Simulated scan of single mutants.
Amino acid sequence: MDHIVTVQEAVTAFEPWMEPTDAELDAIDAEMPVIRAEMELLDAQIVVIDRTPCELDERRIRRARRRVLAAHRDHVNGLSGQTGGAA
């Protein structure tokens, strides 16, 4: 009979080289406004997933879409300013 065991070392091993670098963490930090805006849009869409949206729901979704677009615009403009190129 073969026993099924977990390989503890493979499951819990976190070597220092597996951690995100400071540059990766900075990139995530810079993109957080976009992530938050997209989460807000998703929340607004989830609310109306099983019902007909009322006028207030439609306004909330439109506002969330505009925030996503503005966050993307600001993020891309910030990136182009860092690299010195034009977007």
Rank of each mutant, 00 (worst) to 15 (best):
H72G: 03
G81I: 00
M1R: 12
E15I: 04
V5H: 10
V11N: 01
R73M: 10
G81V: 00
H72D: 12
W17M: 02
D50V: 00
A64D: 11
L25E: 13
V47I: 14
E19N: 01
E40Q: 14
Q82W: 00
H3R: 12
P33Y: 08
W17H: 08
Q82T: 09
D57H: 08
D74K: 01
R62G: 06
A64T: 04
A37K: 00
V34S: 12
A70H: 09
V5W: 04
I4L: 14
A70I: 08
A13E: 09
A87L: 15
E31C: 10
R67I: 04
R65E: 15
T21V: 01
D57S: 05
D57A: 03
N77R: 11
P33W: 06
T52P: 02
G84C: 07
D2H: 13
I49W: 01
L41V: 03
E55A: 15
P33G: 06
L42M: 15
D43Y: 00
P53T: 14
V47Q: 13
G85Y: 08
P16F: 05
C54Y: 07
A86Y: 13
T52E: 14
L56E: 13
I61G: 02
M1A: 15
G85H: 03
A64E: 09
E40L: 05
I35S: 09
I4E: 06
G78N: 08
I46E: 10
V48P: 07
D50L: 01
R73K: 09
L79F: 03
G85V: 02
R62Y: 12
R59M: 14
P53K: 05
A64P: 07
P53G: 13
P20S: 01
H3T: 14
V68M: 10
G81N: 05
G81M: 00
E40F: 08
G84F: 02
T52N: 12
R73W: 07
V48T: 15
I61N: 08
E31N: 10
T12Q: 01
M18L: 11
V7P: 03
R66C: 11
D50C: 00
A64H: 02
V34Q: 11
L56D: 13
